[in-house]
């Protein structure tokens, strides 16, 4: 049933939505400047993909997203590990963390542009800052949610703090970290694109703005389509990572049977 839904029902629903879109545009004679028909969007996408400069824009966006995301993963796990292990540090910094978490990070982009320029670096920083928090908070949560029975085993074995961290707390946190990373990669993509919207002359986000400024709404839809595919590909990379990092986890193997 699960497989049936994924491979048959989902494409059917998608096809139906495209049909409704086409039908709506034709019947109500919607201007292509407001909503171009799906087939035109498809042609525009193919057109975009035949131009070499599209690929350099894609590469820039991928670079910004992945670099920002990787920085967030490393810093998020290190900070999360420290805060999860050192109670007083977490209690001291908690108000600060909550404050930073609530703050809309996108509002920082002008500042990042001042600090890091109009090039990709300011977008890398935004992607990192925006995807760091879910990774860090999930790491802390994962370290704290070690079962009492597991703690007792390590205590009875007279394990050191470092051994308990390495063998138990970090391992226990891995599924949580991966969940944080799944949220993080989506946020990193958004961060990179919003950064490109707001400043600079490179990347898919910039392309979306440029096509709009040229009143080429059909091409803009094509760019959005490419962005969606890009986001999906990155997201599935992270999802696939789970199988390799936590092969022991039920969420990984229970789907097999």
């Amino acid at each position: 049933m699960g497989k049936y839904a994924a491979w048959v029902a989902t494409p059917l629903v998608l096809a139906l939505l495209v049909l409704i879109w086409q039908f709506y545009v034709v019947v109500f004679e919607v201007s292509p400047f407001i909503l171009p028909p799906p087939l035109a969007v498809w042609h525009a996408t193919v057109e975009l993909l035949s131009e070499p400069k599209t690929y350099s824009h894609i590469a820039i966006t991928v670079y910004e997203t992945v670099a920002g995301f990787l920085i967030a993963v490393i810093i998020g796990i290190v900070f999360g590990g420290l805060l999860g292990k050192i109670r007083w540090l977490e209690r001291t910094l908690n108000p600060l963390i909550v404050g930073l978490q609530v703050m809309p990070k996108v509002a920082l982009i002008p500042l990042f542009i001042v600090w890091f320029g109009f090039g990709p670096t300011s977008k890398v920083v935004l992607a990192a800052v925006i995807s760091f928090f879910p990774i860090m908070t999930n790491t802390i949560l994962g370290m704290k949610s070690v079962e009492t029975g597991h703690r007792d085993v390590m205590l009875a074995l007279n394990a050191s703090r470092w051994q308990t961290f390495k063998e138990v707390e970090l391992q226990n946190a891995l599924p949580f970290i991966l969940t944080g990373m799944e949220v993080g990669i989506v946020l990193a993509t958004i961060g990179a694109i919003v950064g490109e919207y707001l400043g600079g002359s490179q990347g898919l986000g910039y392309m979306a703005v440029a096509t709009l400024n040229a009143f080429d709404v059909t091409s803009m839809f094509g760019v959005i389509f490419l962005l969606t595919i890009l986001g999906l590909v990155l997201y599935f990379f992270v999802v696939m990572l789970r199988r390799f990092v936590t092969p022991w986890h039920e969420a990984v193997t229970s789907t097999r049977d």
Binding site: G149, H150, D152, V153, A156, N158, Q171, L174, W248
Partner: peptide, 18 residues
């Protein structure tokens, strides 16, 4: 003294990742 002890609990408490 701790080195002389082995403990078994009511739950097996196996670490699922090992």
């Amino acid at each position: 003294a701790m080195d002389e002890l082995g403990v078994v609990f009511q739950e097996a408490n196996m670490f699922p990742w090992m």
